[in-house]
């Protein structure tokens, strides 16, 4: 009897203590990290920073320069009407970082939602429908009537609402769901940028949108990942291509939850920045910008020299958890002269 017990115990001990045997080792491959350390491995490489695999479902590359001007028509009095159709959902599970799946709540299927863009004085009409399982709204920053504020008029599951207001004031604003608990609705991804252009327009520039956000994938009230336009490290492994001596205008919106302060640091040049983009006089000339939740700034800068320049949160915790990227400034003049 004792012998049987001993045998059972020893077999179960072996089962637990000796790791499960896996497939035979293959050819070792060299894994070189971006900090210059190299190891030989036969296993898998998990590297969200130097990711080279297939693109994820959400493409921060196209989001960067994608502006939704709406369906344009002209009213009898000459006012431009811009109509947008926005659908909220809360059932999508998206690969937010390579291999990491998270339940995102979305406007039109993406985090951030589409960048809504109008000109000062346009009539903006948003046909909002809620296809989620919870109540959602669209709360726009800007000047509008109280009943268009998207706070007290919860839109229940299956519900619809039409938000209508004139685009004012000029500047960079945002929209987000304002249903309680707001933190939860924002943290899951219900937000986007809203730009009101001045009637006379702005100087010609290469325009980019950066929505600074984070992902609390294990719901402990702390962000596991940080990013510009959701996917951590995306612009690190896919640098943003720009040209030297060309005006770059970056629309930077901070919608980060849980951390009270976020910031933006630019390498190799300095920018003029315009808080909320409402004024024509820059608030400063700097390479650092500190923003609290809901704050946004328009940045204008140029690169003098070609090359790879980082931009990232100078709060390095954020940058080492994904909020880091690079501009690849190409010398366009030189290229032209090369071709000649």
């Amino acid at each position: 009897m004792f012998m049987i017990l001993v045998i059972v115990v020893s077999i179960s001990t072996l089962y637990f203590v000796i790791p499960a045997v896996s497939d035979a080792a293959e050819e070792p491959k060299t894994f070189l990290t971006h900090t210059g350390l190299a190891i030989q491995t036969t296993g898998d490489i998990i590297d969200p920073i130097g990711y080279t695999g297939e693109l994820l479902e959400f493409d921060p590359e196209s989001y960067l320069r994608d502006f939704d001007y709406g369906t344009v028509s002209e009213l009898e009095d000459g006012t431009i009407l811009r109509e947008f159709t926005i659908t909220a959902r809360d059932d999508q599970v998206m690969e937010v970082s390579p291999g990491v799946f998270y339940n995102v709540w979305t406007f039109n299927g993406t985090v951030p939602g589409p960048t809504i863009r109008a000109t000062e004085g346009d009539l903006v009409r948003v046909h909002f429908s809620n296809e989620g399982s919870k109540s959602h709204t669209m709360h726009f920053h800007g000047i509008h009537k109280a009943e268009m504020d998207g706070v007290f008029e919860n839109v229940g599951p299956g519900g619809k609402f039409i938000y209508e207001f004139f685009a004012e004031p000029v500047g960079l604003h945002l929209y987000h769901c304002h249903v309680h608990p707001v933190e939860e609705h924002i943290a899951h991804g219900l937000y986007g940028a809203y730009i009101v252009d001045p009637k006379e327009g702005r100087a010609q520039a290469d325009e980019l949108v950066f929505v600074l956000n984070g992902l609390d994938t294990d719901f402990d009230g702390e962000n596991n990942f940080y990013g510009a336009n959701t996917v951590p490290f995306y612009y690190q492994h896919h640098p943003v291509e720009i040209s030297t001596n060309e005006l770059i205008r970056a629309y930077v919106v901070n919608i980060l939850e849980f951390d009270p302060v976020n910031n933006f640091h630019l390498h190799g040049t300095l920018f003029h920045h315009y808080p909320a983009g409402t004024d024509t006089v820059p608030a400063g000339f700097n390479d650092m910008l500190t923003m609290s939740q809901g704050e946004r700034e328009i940045l204008e800068f140029e690169y003098k020299y070609p090359g790879l320049y980082m931009f990232h949160a100078h709060n390095t915790e954020f940058s080492e958890k994904g909020w880091v990227g690079s501009f690849l400034a190409k010398d366009t003049n030189k290229n032209i002269s090369d071709e000649i």
Partner: peptide, 12 residues
Amino acid sequence: DRIQPAAIEPDN
């Protein structure tokens, strides 16, 4: 709590 590239053997 700072993300690092890594290898995992035999697989992830």
